[in-house]
Computed example of a mutant assay.
Amino acid sequence: MTSDQQTDSTETASRNPAHVPLGDLAAVWPRVTAWLDRIRQLPSTQEEFTNRYGAFHDEESLSVFLYALVQAGILGHMLGTPADIRKRIAEDPDYLIGPRMPDECYGAVIWLAGRAGSRAGTIGITYDSLPMILDPGNGTPEQRAKALREILTSKGGIGPEADRTAGEAEQIRLRLEAVRDELAHCIGELHEHSPLPEAYRTIGGRPGEEEVARKEALIRDLREVHTTAHLVASALTRAGSVIERQRDVCANVPTVVTAVCRAGDDTQLSRHVWVGDILGSLMGNGSQWKAAQKAADDFVQRALVS
């Protein structure tokens, strides 16, 4: 494959709405959830921490560690887990289907998938309806072309609605990126100021059984927090990439329909075969949009049981 063919293949894939890998989101978010659950189980005040795990000589380093732990917990609430979202839905059944973007990133991702699926369904129906909309019995070529332009580009049409979804996707992508970067800083602090080295030294000094038990408890509770932390950043990076693909697919729609409506004359825009072919080649065909709707619906259904 030549470089030009590779570029064309990449561009075609980016236009295909069925190539938004929402399944990747379902696969990576459990890593985030598992890590956040471990963080939430750790005591975050110095008194609670030392009551559970015993005293530490380096109190300054422990203070930095606990501050980073608190910050990670706050960022965790900003990210959200399936359990968090289920709780919000219990309080507000319309939490994921209303016009307002949810507060948690995970809720926002599910909300976006629902909206993207709805847009995809509308586009799929539009493809199916082209023969009827552009039937010669429905007026002159000029009248049929005008009706098509309204469906594609007027307020509430598929172009502006897809553009709005693209903007929402970009907001969510930026939120994920910001939280990921802040969380990466917290994880760095947790590693740098970890009390684990002192816990190992204490055990090596052969203290009393109670102190050994406390330090061993810390090792059990904290070791996996450290060893799985890198998975969180990579999961959020992958999630951001999926949202970016969703943004690009949606942003392509208004670009294409506007260009087609401007470039096509009334005769071309009144023929459903011509319209279906050119739209399908530039932004995905009806079958691909229906596949995108199914993928989005499936993700939304699975997202709350992960």
Rank of each mutant, 00 (worst) to 15 (best):
D4M: 13
T7E: 14
R15C: 10
V20C: 02
P21D: 14
L22S: 06
W29Y: 15
T33Q: 12
L36H: 11
D37N: 10
I39F: 00
Q41S: 15
L42E: 10
L42Y: 00
S44D: 15
F49S: 01
F49M: 03
N51L: 09
Y53I: 01
G54R: 07
G54P: 00
F56Q: 02
F56W: 05
H57I: 07
V64F: 04
F65Q: 01
F65T: 00
L69K: 06
L69S: 11
L69Y: 03
G80F: 01
R88L: 14
I89T: 12
E91H: 10
D94V: 13
D94Q: 14
P99T: 11
G117P: 08
G121T: 09
I125T: 14
Y127M: 12
D128W: 00
M132F: 06
L134E: 01
P141L: 02
E142S: 12
E142V: 14
Q143T: 07
A145C: 09
A145W: 05
A145N: 05
A147D: 08
E150H: 10
I158V: 15
I158F: 07
P160Y: 03
E161W: 01
T165R: 10
G167C: 06
E168W: 09
E170Y: 07
L176Y: 02
A178V: 02
D181Y: 01
E182Q: 13
G188V: 08
E192F: 07
H193K: 08
L196H: 00
A199K: 04
T202R: 10
I203S: 05
I203M: 09
G204D: 12
G205W: 02
R206E: 11
E210F: 02
A213Q: 13
A213T: 13
K215C: 01
L218M: 08
I219C: 03
L222S: 05
R223W: 11
H226V: 09
T227D: 13
A235I: 05
L236N: 08
T237G: 09
G240W: 03
V242A: 11
R245G: 02
Q246I: 05
A251E: 12
N252F: 00
V256T: 15
T258G: 02
A259V: 10
A263C: 06
A263R: 14
G264K: 04
S270P: 06
S270I: 06
W274G: 00
D277C: 05
L279K: 04
L282E: 12
L282G: 03
L282T: 14
G286H: 04
S287Y: 07
A291V: 02
A291W: 03
A292V: 10
A296N: 05
D298V: 05
F299Y: 15
Q301C: 05
V305Y: 04
V305A: 08
